[in-house]
Design a binder for these strands. Structure first.
Lengths: 202, 202
DNA sequence: TAGAATTTCCTACAACCGTTAGGCAACTCG
DNA sequence: CGAGTTGCCTAACGGTTGTAGGAAATTCTA
């Protein structure tokens, strides 16, 4: 079935690795091609362009993140929250370029269904996987359907915001360490989620 | 004193406007030059390169944000928190490219003092201005110095995280509206800040 | 085993962006 | 009015994206 060589998945995986090495923005087609030992035009057999490459990396990494996170998730309530949040933060610290890929992606609101690449659809699907994991955490607190979307947004905003600012170096120049404030953040988040769960049933 | 024309501030202000129109990543030197009616090399009289331009825009926008936010800040405790958070969110919604500029900037940890452009120093100073505003909000809750850094990180993470995810369209595809969950987030944040303030003095 | 089909990869090329070098023109001040 | 200063220009180079078309390698088939 033709000559063997690179395939789309290998290209995208290499791009994800390169993002961790050089930063997501530095992942260009030419750099990636050099890194793979081929010429730039070769990559156009596997990806349709630079934006497709970035979107595909996002989808690929979102799937990796969902895999990692779901593997780490265990327990209920506070234990589950800590396991979930730590898994995401560890992922971001271990693979900053990959984590950047998950956030540096914008889905235009009026995105027509025909003008969507396959990669965009894959990224949306993978994003939903991660959202479902967040929902699992919230549900384990006993939060009902009425409030679960709100609780997911609150939790995701806090976790994502903290990790983003931490990675940007915002917390690096002042005591206490980011390492010590992180558990406290999760503790307060646990309190808030508990409150939401108890406030609804009265 | 020579021939009048563009100056550095005008170039950077135009770049900030362009970021709102086309997105921060689309602000290139050539596009900016076309937008200003000059040729690309002309801009090198006012900026030292592409990275300097981006950093300068970040510093410029961080100052604008601090101006806007401090103008909107009024009251104490919960009122002040809402005024503060709403001001930042309104800024981000009104000027998404500018808000992106505030976040898309990374300060390398081991940044030597000599290898720093003026723009980097200005960005750091402007960033501190915004951090001081956050500190003002936290202080108005009566939170002591022992916990103020922690409280600032919690508050900033939640606000920044929510705005980022909202702007990325994450909250757009599900009920309830992001408009309705936002006040609830601030309410829970108010509760948490109040708890931190009361828990410290016993 | 020979040939066909398929797929990969290449060279060549055009367009655009960032950047530097060097020169012309306009404005201000003495 | 002349000198100095400053802003903007053209020219040119290297690097990146993207397209077109062709050569080579591998697998399937006769």
């Amino acid at each position: 079935m033709g000559r063997p060589g690179l395939n789309r998945t290998a290209v995208i995986a290499a791009a994800a690795d390169l993002a961790d090495e050089l930063g997501f923005d530095a992942v260009t087609i030419s750099v990636l091609a050099r890194h793979l030992g081929v010429r730039s035009p070769t990559l156009y057999s596997h990806i349709s362009g630079a934006t497709d490459l970035r979107t595909a990396v996002t989808a690929y990494v979102l799937d990796e993140l969902a895999d990692t996170t779901s593997r780490a998730m265990a327990g209920e309530g506070r234990d589950l929250l800590v396991a979930y949040a730590d898994a995401i933060r560890d992922f971001a610290r271990r693979s900053p370029g990959r984590y950047d890929a998950t956030t540096r992606q914008r889905v235009p609101p009026g995105q027509a269904r025909e003008s969507r690449t396959d990669s965009v659809g894959e990224a949306i699907t993978a994003g939903r996987r991660n959202a479902d994991l967040a929902l699992t955490v919230v549900r384990s607190y006993g939060i009902a359907e009425t409030n679960d979307t709100y609780a997911v947004r609150l939790m995701s905003s806090l976790i994502h915001g903290y990790i983003t600012l931490e990675m940007a170096g915002t917390f690096a120049h002042r005591e206490p360490t980011s390492e010590t404030t992180w558990p406290a953040v999760l503790e307060d988040l646990d309190r808030t989620l508990t409150r939401i769960a108890t406030a609804q049933c009265h």
